[in-house]
Structure formats: structure tokens, C-alpha cells
């Protein structure tokens, strides 16, 4: 193809390539902040996207309703059995909550790691190429969403907000392979056992809970929740259930595989939690982020 590689085109191609590499490296460096033009594009596209996604969710909702209608009989039978337990449980929960409030008043402690203001949001898109585990929701800075807030469904924690624009925000799911993604977690059955959710096993589809003190015993089936000590996430959001316990690579601490309570595959309505107590840039956030990224940069 002689006419394709004429001098002018060759130069244009080269300049284009250089520009491209510069653009990619520029945007790779600082991915947690959107510049003004980016924000505008995101908001405009997000607006269009929500117009398309709301009717779709309505239709899939109808299908879901039909499906659950078909299962009603079986479900009803099972639920009836559990209803009596539920009443008893509810009574004791109410009792405990009241007692907790009273005790708090006595010791004059208002703040609570558990308390959060929920913001309801709708998922308007999932990153269609799915190389990164990201979803985009229809609430943004205007609605009070900030970077690093915890995002959950009714089942449990699914991720955290990584980027906000005035009207949309991007949520990175727990199933990401980002090495800087950490959630401070706790197994609270009997004794409190702390650990960090670090990483996701792609093959097993399970989260990895690392840095558990080897003195403590962790058993299969125990529930893992957020500890609230990472500085950003509120306490007590369910993450999942332990499926296997081993020791880590160096044999110093224990490592547990955690099956996530929430499903990451089809998401529509999510809750963003705005913690009421002051946020600290701890292990959940970017405090140690800086030196970790330097290390990761050297490694890769």
C-alpha cells in the first residue's frame, strides 16, 4: 500500500501515537479525580444513560415479579416456619436497642461507628467491557455523595465510591483486583477477630480476608462484617461468610476466604452510606495508599 504510507500520513501517524501514549499515561496517573470537561461529559452521558436504563429496569422488574410469583407457594411455606422465630428475635432486638440507647445516654456517648445516613441510588450502567469491576450510579455530589463512601445492597457490602461528578458517581466493586483496595473487617462471633479484606480470588469468586492474628480461631461459616475501624466505612455492614481458613504465604498470620453475601452480577438498586462520625483516611481509604502505589509501581 504505497499511497497509505505517504510522508504526510506517516508523520501524522507518529504524532498521533505520541499524543495517544501521553494521553493514556496522563489519565492513568490520576484516575480518582475528574477534570471539569470530564465531569461535564460524564453528567451529560449519565443523564442519557438513566433515560435508557430506567425503562429496562422496569421491564426486568416485571420479569422478576413473575418469577417470584411462581415461587410464592414454596417460599410462603418456608417463611411461615421462620416467622415465629422472627417475632421473638424482633422483640429482643428492640429490647437491646433500647437498652443500648439508655446506656449510651448514661455514659454521654453520642457518636456511633454504626450510624450512617443511607442514600438510595439506582445503577444506571455497568462498565460494559468489564475489564474493571465498576458500576455507575445516578447520584452524585449534589446528593451528598463523596469519594470512599461504602456502597451496599440489601444483602451486604458491594464496594466503595471512587469518583464523583455533580450528578453521577462511579463505584468500584469488591470483586476488583486493584491492590490498593482494602476494607477493614471483623469476625464478631464470641471474640472479635480483626482482618483486612485484600483482594479477590477470580477463580473461587471469593474475597480474601488477610492479616488475621493466628492466635484466634476462625471457623468456616462465621459471618464477616465491616469493623468501622478503617476510618471510612460504618461498622456492621455484612460482607460475607468464611468458607476456608489457611495460613498466609509466610505462615505468620491466617488467611480466610470469604464468600460475599451480595451478588455482584446483577445490581439495580444500591444504598450509599454516609457515615455520621468523622471520616479518617485510614486503611479503607488512601492514607497508606501513597507508599503502597509506589511499591506497586516498582513491582509492575
Amino acid at each position: 500500500m504505497p499511497q497509505f504510507f505517504s510522508n504526510k500520513r506517516l508523520i501524522l501517524l507518529l504524532v498521533g501515537m505520541i499524543f495517544l501514549v501521553a494521553l493514556i499515561s496522563f489519565s492513568l496517573r490520576d484516575r480518582n479525580h475528574a477534570s471539569l470537561p470530564e465531569q461535564v461529559i460524564k453528567d451529560v452521558v449519565g443523564f442519557g444513560q438513566s433515560i435508557f436504563s430506567k425503562p429496562t429496569q422496569y421491564i426486568t422488574g416485571v420479569f422478576d415479579n413473575v418469577e417470584s410469583l411462581l415461587n410464592t407457594y414454596d417460599e410462603n411455606k418456608r417463611l411461615k416456619v421462620r416467622l415465629e422465630d422472627y417475632v421473638a428475635l424482633q422483640a429482643s432486638v428492640n429490647d437491646l436497642r433500647l437498652e443500648n440507647d439508655e446506656l449510651r445516654k448514661i455514659v454521654d456517648k453520642e457518636e456511633d461507628l454504626r450510624a450512617y445516613n443511607p442514600i438510595q441510588a439506582t445503577v444506571i450502567a455497568r462498565n460494559p467491557d468489564q475489564w474493571e469491576e465498576k458500576i455507575i450510579i445516578d447520584k452524585g455530589e449534589i446528593h451528598g455523595i463523596e469519594v470512599n463512601m461504602a456502597v451496599m445492597t440489601a444483602q451486604g457490602l458491594i464496594g466503595k465510591v471512587t469518583l464523583t461528578t455533580p450528578y453521577t458517581s462511579t463505584v468500584e466493586l469488591l470483586s476488583t483486583q486493584n491492590p490498593n483496595y482494602r476494607v477493614s473487617a471483623v469476625i464478631a462471633e464470641g471474640k472479635e477477630v480483626f482482618g483486612l479484606i485484600e483482594g479477590y480470588d477470580e477463580k473461587r469468586k471469593e474475597l480474601i480476608l488477610k492479616r488475621i492474628d493466628s492466635e484466634y480461631e476462625v471457623k468456616k461459616g462465621q459471618k464477616v462484617t465491616t469493623s468501622g475501624l478503617g476510618g471510612i466505612f460504618p461498622k456492621g455492614i455484612l460482607i460475607g461468610e468464611v468458607t476456608e481458613v489457611t495460613t498466609d504465604d509466610y505462615g505468620l498470620t491466617k488467611l480466610a476466604y470469604v464468600k460475599p453475601a451480595a451478588s455482584f452480577s446483577i445490581l439495580d438498586h444500591v444504598i450509599v452510606s454516609k457515615r455520621t462520625i468523622t471520616n479518617v483516611d485510614g486503611t479503607d481509604g488512601g492514607n497508606t495508599d501513597a507508599d503502597l502505589t509506589e511499591g506497586a509501581g516498582d513491582g509492575s
Binding site: I24, S27, A34, K42
Partner: peptide, 17 residues
Amino acid sequence: GLLYDVFFIDIIGLYSF
């Protein structure tokens, strides 16, 4: 491609190339 880059993946220049 540019819209796709900005809205979904935050790496500008990938799809637009």
C-alpha cells in the same frame, strides 16, 4: 470512543484509538 473512555473507564485514549 472518547465518550466511552471518559464515562466508563477513565483512561482517555483507549477506545478513542
